[in-house]
Computed example of a mutant assay.
Amino acid sequence: MTPPVFAHGHLRLYLLSILASQPMHGYELMQALGERFGGTYVPSAGTIYPRLAKLEEEGLVTKSTDGRKTVYAITDAGRTELENRQGELDGIESDVTDSVRRLADEVRTSVNDAMKTLRADLASAAREARSEAHEAGRTVKMEPQRQQGGMQLREAEMVLNEFRHQVRADLRGLAAGGKLPENTVSLLTSQLAAVRKSLRENGAK
């Protein structure tokens, strides 16, 4: 099971530290958190707003209306809270750094595993084709097709390797710009699974 990004109570303190720089509305807070995590983690509204409500209840933040937006600002009591818990906040910053590395590793692992599975499926399909040709007694007649199949397999593996490098470059670019979506891993997994399914279905025809 993937460990939580923040330990119990730490997200509230971290939100308070972000608001110490300037007042923000909820969406801006979510964006600020996403930027600090390089886009590998973006909290939902259901995660942020209950914490903000608790901070307001404790007198650590206030909220005001700016058009249709609700803007949150830290209070003097909130700044005092930050000063008193500075050591704890430093530990949270260290945990955030570790979480960013862990989440980035999970994205890389997901991509690598998916690519390995695709290559294994291609190799398996090629072996099955050779085995079927042999059992049917068509080894000689199928030799040109087997050679063609081997060439296609090598070309497919080259395409997969190039795709892997391109995806990694894209992921790093998005992460560096703080634009890596929260659903990156699930999106990669579902799309690569769709490619596998398509390969199997075409091979069965």
Results as ranks from 00 to 15, higher is better:
P4Q: 03
A7P: 01
G9C: 09
H10Q: 15
L13V: 12
L16I: 14
S17M: 06
I18R: 06
L19S: 04
L19W: 05
S21T: 11
G26E: 13
G26P: 00
E28T: 08
L29Q: 02
M30F: 01
M30G: 10
L33P: 00
E35N: 08
G38P: 05
T40F: 13
S44P: 01
S44A: 12
A45G: 06
T47P: 02
I48A: 01
R51E: 15
A53H: 07
K54P: 00
G59D: 11
L60W: 08
V61A: 01
S64W: 01
G67D: 02
G67T: 05
I74S: 04
T75K: 05
T80H: 07
E81W: 05
L82R: 06
L82Q: 04
R85T: 15
Q86H: 10
G91R: 10
V96R: 08
D98G: 03
A104D: 08
D105A: 14
R108C: 02
R108H: 02
R108A: 04
N112F: 01
D113Q: 09
D113N: 07
D113A: 08
A114V: 02
K116Q: 12
R119H: 10
A120S: 10
D121L: 13
A123T: 05
A129H: 08
E132N: 05
E132T: 14
A133H: 01
H134N: 08
E135I: 05
R138E: 13
R138Q: 14
R138F: 10
T139W: 11
T139Y: 11
V140I: 14
K141R: 11
M142A: 15
R146Q: 13
R154Q: 15
E155A: 14
E155Y: 09
A156W: 02
N161Q: 10
A169V: 00
A169L: 03
L171K: 02
L171C: 04
A175C: 02
E182L: 06
N183Q: 13
V185H: 05
V185M: 06
V185G: 03
S186N: 04
L187K: 11
T189G: 00
T189D: 12
S190R: 11
R196V: 09
K197A: 15
K197G: 03
L199N: 03
L199W: 09
R200K: 15
G203E: 13
A204Y: 03
A204S: 09
